[in-house]
């Protein structure tokens, strides 16, 4: 058996023989879906990436923030 096949079977058999693990994987999948596809997309934009196109603009903005009030 080729190495790739051996690795495939190793993981396949491992996942197949899981008991509690199946429940845990389901939980992980649900959690990752909620985190990345709901919470991240809807509520957590990267402010600097979204509002500014270049690093120069980002630097200028932060420099303004640091020097405001002067």
């Amino acid at each position: 058996m080729s190495l790739m096949k051996k690795i495939y079977h190793f993981y396949y058999d491992g996942f197949k023989s899981m008991k509690v693990g199946k429940k845990l994987w389901l939980l992980i999948a649900i959690k990752l879906f909620i985190l990345f596809f709901i919470i991240k997309l809807l509520f957590f934009p990267n402010v600097m990436q979204t509002h500014f196109k270049t690093d120069e603009a980002r630097s200028a903005y932060i420099l303004d923030q640091l020097t405001q009030g002067e």
Partner: peptide, 30 residues
Amino acid sequence: GLLAINFAIGVATGIIMEFEFGTNWSNYSW
């Protein structure tokens, strides 16, 4: 087995802090 349960439940809970860095703490992140 108990380690696996704890690991599975806890995994990726830390990634939320990275979300927060980018959104709530963007000045700091920069």
